[in-house]
Structure formats: structure tokens, C-alpha cells
């Protein structure tokens, strides 16, 4: 995973709440067995409408998505994060993220920055007033700058550290192998196992 400390790119206003994962990527695209190549699937239904923000210059070159509250609700599909990344997004800003989406983003190095809704609205105004305005997101200081708007964002320390270091969760956990084995030795005998199979 590539470390991120700061990112600057064109902001894209997506003025909708409850952007669910079926909108981000419909289920028909989940049949693939790779982690890449999902850029064409991103917001598939909406992209068919000419007025959709990603069909407009310069927003189609955006890398920072600024969405309404409750972004990423619904299914656990990590494909939603892969599609956003494949399209070129590095940061998603929203006042509230669905839990699973939030976790998935962190694991793929997509920064999900929680910015208060009044600030989100100021950023929307700025982006509409001056399309193409760049947004700078700084993980060191947890700040967002968009034109004249300065805002802060929330992120837990652990996620922030992992993003900045570009650390892979599995290798981190495997450092705890001894603890896992110790725990396993104390698990009660009545806990079920799937093998040998009983039907």
C-alpha cells in the first residue's frame, strides 16, 4: 500500500446523501475475480446521464470526491473502494461514512475524511463557484483546504498512522502469532468446527 501524507487534486461535488454501494458499483460488476479494472463500473447508472458531475469538465479529472452524509451505506463490497481508486479518487470527504466502507477504505489506502456537514456545504459552494478548484488534504495536520475554505477532518490515530506508513494489516497481525496461538489453546471445547463436516 502506498503511504499518503498529503494529497492535492480537483474536488468533485456529489451533492447527495446516502450514496449507497449499489450506486457506487452495481452488483453485476462484482462477478470479476480481480482487484482492478473497475473504473468503468464506478457510478455506472449515474454516468449514463450527461448532467452527472463526472461527465463534466473539469470534474471528470477529479481526485477528491466531496459527498453528502452517509456515504458508502449498504453492502460490504470492497469493490466500491476499488472502483473509486481505479477511477483516480484518492480522497472521499463526507460528514458520515458507513462503517464497513470506512474500514475498507483504510485498508486500500483511500482516505475517507470526515468533515462536518456545514464545511462540506462551504466546499460544495466553492467548487460550484469555481469548478476545477483543487482541494488539499493533509493527514499530518488533519486539515482540508479548498479555495478560501479551511476545515479540519476527523480520523482515528490508528488509521491515520497506517495510511501514513502504508502498512499492511496482515503482516502487522502476524507479528502477534504467539498471542493468537495462546488464545487458541484456551478456546472452550464446545465451540463448533466446520470440519469434519456433519450434515
Amino acid at each position: 500500500m502506498e503511504p499518503i501524507t498529503t494529497h492535492t487534486g480537483i474536488g468533485v461535488p456529489l451533492k447527495q446523501s446516502n450514496v449507497d454501494t449499489d450506486q457506487i458499483i452495481p452488483a453485476v460488476f462484482l462477478k470479476r475475480i480481480t482487484k482492478t479494472g473497475f473504473d468503468d463500473a464506478l457510478f455506472h447508472a449515474w454516468r449514463k446521464k450527461p448532467e452527472f458531475v463526472l461527465n463534466q469538465e473539469p470534474f471528470n479529472q477529479g481526485t477528491v470526491l466531496v459527498a453528502g452524509p452517509d456515504f458508502g451505506t449498504g453492502s460490504s463490497r470492497e469493490h466500491a473502494v476499488w472502483a473509486l481508486k481505479d477511477y483516480g479518487f484518492k480522497v472521499v470527504i463526507s460528514s458520515r461514512f458507513a462503517d464497513i466502507f470506512y474500514g475498507n477504505s483504510a485498508k486500500q489506502g483511500l482516505l475517507a475524511a470526515k468533515v462536518a456537514q456545514p464545511d462540506v456545504e462551504l466546499i460544495w459552494k466553492e467548487l460550484e463557484r469555481q469548478p476545477g478548484t483543487e482541494i488539499t488534504v493533509d493527514l499530518e495536520s488533519c486539515t482540508v483546504r479548498c479555495g478560501s475554505v479551511d476545515a479540519t477532518f476527523e480520523i482515528d490515530n490508528y488509521t491515520r498512522w497506517r495510511l501514513m506508513e502504508g502498512l499492511d494489516d496482515i503482516s502487522l497481525t502476524l507479528r502477534q502469532e504467539e498471542h493468537i496461538s495462546t488464545y487458541e489453546a484456551t478456546r472452550p471445547g464446545f465451540k463448533p468446527t466446520t470440519l469434519p463436516a456433519k450434515v
Partner: peptide, 17 residues
């Protein structure tokens, strides 16, 4: 529910942070 990275994590370690 968990994402695919977490699926891999559980397969490899039987744990989840």
C-alpha cells in the same frame, strides 16, 4: 460483514483488528 481485505486477513490469521 467485512470487506475483502478483511476476508483475507481472517483467512490468514483467524483474527481481525
Amino acid at each position: 460483514g467485512i470487506g475483502t481485505s478483511e476476508v483475507e486477513h481472517v483467512l490468514a490469521t483467524q483474527t481481525l483488528p
